[in-house]
Amino acid sequence: MFKEFAKWLKTLKNEGVDHISVEERRAFLKMGLVITGVYAGGSLLSVVSRVKEVYADIPDYVGHYPYKPHYTMVLRVDRCIDCERCMEACRKTNHVPPYGWRTRILEQHLPKGDHQWERRFMPILCNHCNEPPCVRACPTKATFKDKVTGIVRVNIKKCIGCKACVAACPYDMRYFNEEKRAIDKCDFCWESRLSKGIFPTACAQACPAGVRIFGDLSDPQSRVYQMVHDPQRALWVLRPETGARPNVFYTIH
């Protein structure tokens, strides 16, 4: 019986995947499946698993951008080679002391099966969350979400150094700066560059591999908008379960 069925399946022609809507593709991508063929007038689909490669948990808040410009960064992680030029540029531009950090690189060993693994470097920085836990934790309102750009900044005059925000940050992206006697963190180079009209951030400028794409997510013409809204692209954020709604997105290819 199955042999007959298999024979019949083999006689079918692949009608091509062009007529599948992007929404449908993305729905399958979320399940870790990529549609490779359409048969019998669209009633049969051929799919392959890309679970290992794709962790496509596209945040549901994509599409609502309350800030203008809504600054964001998209990181093409598979291109990162941990040359740490971004970290060097950041230190220099923002006067980050040796004991502190505004951005870091993590190293992952992704299992490939057969006791083998593949190295992947993952740059991390402040996610400039839409619902920042650090801002909620700050007792003096020293750390705040910029009403125009959405950048999470620190008013060092108000900071009392209690480090409640350090404990609250899901990404460990805050440190106490001894010289400033205040918390210091990534501000997308707002003070050192953006506010002076210099674009993009120092790290994005320094990256030789094109990992860090910085831009305005509320501008449909921007590269970040097009990457985030590309239904074919696997896109994810770090620790989505915290509900912080981060504005730093991760992708591959």
Binding site: I81, D82, C83, E84, I105, E107, R119, F121
Partner: peptide
């Protein structure tokens, strides 16, 4: 492709 196969980074 497979950048981090040869590129071991500053950490490596």
């Amino acid at each position: 492709t497979r950048c981090a196969t040869c590129h071991i980074g500053v950490m490596g």
